[in-house]
Amino acid sequence: MKILVAIKRVVDYNVRVQVKPDGSGVATDGVKMSINPFDEIAIEEALRIKEQGKAEEVVVVTIGSNDSQQQLRTAMAMGADRAILVETDTAVQPLQAAQVLLKVIEQEQPGLVITGKQAIDDDNNQTPQMLATLWNRPQATFASKVEFVEGNKISVTREVDAGLETIQVELPAVVSTDLRLNEPRFVKLPDIMKAKRKPLEVKAIADLVPAPKGQAIEVLKHEAPQPRQKGVMVETVDELLEILKDKGLVS
């Protein structure tokens, strides 16, 4: 079986982004870029499945600018066998991303697709579900555990508001990862060297999906969130309780 992992290059999660003064976007010049953390977990999960002997190949794909090659190389340094960059210089919204990924699926015929549940830039949380829909295959979102069971099925534990839900889905399927699925490995220097020799194929987005369906949502402006009013520091429990009692929050 082949596993396809879809990743995205995003502003590193440690960076506190700033909205540009003219409201046209967030400042990303000179900002550290990384693999979306949820996608890094997806790569790790695919590698572990391969290491258990349940998959032969891990292919990583991204849609983005040429700079995204860095993130694909990192994924290959982690252990992915090869990479595909679907190149575009414009932002791609989830429905278009899902259509592009579907084309890659048609070419690659993976038995399992794993991707992060959301990208931490747009926080959309849509692409995996849309991809599963267009592919007409099951989805197991927000996964915290993936196990192979009899036949051609996986059992997936999902992090849901009420607790942990377990479902079984037939393969091929789309799994989207949550934070506690695994802890991604660190990349070692020799692996970075080795990754440079692994195949990285670049495709133009227009060659895959010349006329994407669906209208993009128009972004009119960006603004900084309303800051909370600066609060007060108290020295004692008595002072704290007095404030809370005044506000009617405790009795």
């Binding site: 506190r16 982004v17 909205v19 967030v26 747009d122 926080d123 972004v219 009119l220 603004e223 900084a224």
Partner: peptide, 9 residues
């Protein structure tokens, strides 16, 4: 977006 660090219209 960005964990609430920016709000888009």
């Amino acid at each position: 977006i960005y964990a609430g660090n920016a709000i888009i219209t």
